[in-house]
Simulated assay, not measured.
Amino acid sequence: MSATDTATHLYWATGCTSCLRVKEFLERTNTSFVSHNVVRTDGTTADDDVEASVGIQGVDPELMDEMAELGLPQHVPIVRRGEEWADGKDLKNVAELLDIDYDAEPLPVGELYDRLTILLETTQEYLEYLPDDELETHIPNRPRSYADLVQHIYSLPDVFMMHEAGVPMTGVPRMEHDWDHNSKVALRTYGSSVQGRLDDWFESTGQTCDWSETADVFWGQPTKHEFFERTTWHTGQHVRQLEWVLQEVCGVEIENPLDDALWEDLPMPEKVWNDN
C-alpha cells in the first residue's frame, strides 16, 4: 500500500478505548476512512517483541509489517493520510492532520481526581462480583482476560503516578509484577496500593504540581492536566466494560451501577465496545 494515496487510514484494535474514541471522532466529523483492525482472531500473530510494542495480543503480522514499511509507530490507534500520520490518542493532532476544527478544555483537576477516585472504588466493588473461575475468561473479541482488564484499570493511574515520579511514558504500558494477577486478592491489593499512592500524592506533591507543564509521553505533547484527564476517562471506559461484562455476560445484578453523570464533559467514547 502506497503512502502517497490521499485516503485517510485508521489502524486500530478491537477493545482499544483510544481506537474506539478516534473512530467515533472520524465518524462524527463525517471523515471517510479505510479501516485496518490489527487484531486477528484466527490464531495468527506477530512475534513477542512486536506484541510488546503494540501492547495487544493477537496482532496481525502482515499489518504490523505494513505499518513498519510506511514508517508508522508499532502501536494503535494511528491515523494516516499520505505520508503524514498522527497518534489517535491525541485528537488535537488528528484534527490538525485532517484539517478539522477541534477545541476542548479538560475538566478541573479536582473534579477529575474525584471521578477517578469513584472509578477505582467502584472497581474494587465490582471485583467482588467476578466469579473466581471466570478470571481467565476473555472479554469479547479480544484476547484480554477479565483479570487483565481489572489489572489494566488499576495500571492507568499507576502509570500516571510513575510519570510524576520521573519515569517517562516511552511506550504502551505493560505492567510487569512478581505476583499472579489471576487472583482477586492480588488484584484487590494492587488496586488499594494504587488508590493509596494517588491519594497521598494528590494531597502532598500534587498540590504544587504545574499542570500546564508538558507531559513526557510517547503519543504527543499533552499538558499534565490533559494527561490526567486521559487517565480518568480511559480508566472510566474500562470500568464501563467491566460493568458490562458483569451484567451481560456473568448475569450479575449490580445494586449501584455507574452513574452516567460520571461521563459528563469527559472526552470518552460513546459506546462501550467496538461494533466491528
Rank of each mutant, 00 (worst) to 15 (best):
Y126N: 07
E128K: 07
E128S: 11
Y129W: 05
Y129V: 00
Y129A: 09
Y129C: 04
L130P: 01
L130N: 00
L130S: 00
L130M: 10
L130G: 00
P131K: 02
P131H: 05
P131R: 04
D132F: 00
D133F: 00
D133K: 00
E134K: 05
E134N: 05
L135E: 01
E136T: 04
E136D: 15
T137W: 03
T137H: 06
T137Q: 09
T137R: 07
H138I: 01
H138K: 10
H138P: 03
H138N: 13
P140S: 13
P140L: 13
P140V: 04
N141W: 13
N141T: 09
N141F: 15
N141A: 14
R142K: 12
R142Q: 15
R142C: 11
R142T: 13
P143M: 04
P143E: 12
R144T: 09
R144K: 11
R144C: 04
S145Q: 08
Y146F: 04
A147Y: 01
A147I: 02
A147N: 01
L149V: 10
V150M: 02
V150E: 00
V150C: 03
V150K: 01
V150F: 07
V150G: 00
Q151L: 15
Q151T: 08
Q151G: 13
Q151E: 14
Q151D: 08
Q151I: 02
H152I: 00
H152A: 03
H152D: 04
H152L: 08
H152N: 11
Y154H: 15
S155Y: 05
L156W: 02
L156E: 10
L156S: 10
L156M: 11
P157F: 09
D158V: 03
D158Y: 12
D158Q: 12
D158N: 15
D158T: 12
D158F: 11
V159I: 14
V159R: 08
M161E: 05
M161V: 03
M161A: 09
M161T: 03
M162C: 06
M162D: 13
H163Q: 13
H163K: 07
H163R: 11
G166M: 07
G166T: 05
V167G: 02
V167N: 06
V167H: 10
P168T: 07
P168Q: 09
P168F: 08
P168V: 06
M169D: 15
T170V: 14
T170S: 12
G171D: 15
P173C: 09
P173M: 10
R174P: 00
R174Y: 04
R174V: 08
M175N: 08
E176M: 09
E176W: 02
H177C: 07
H177F: 15
H177T: 13
D178V: 05
D178W: 04
W179G: 02
D180Q: 06
D180I: 05
N182M: 08
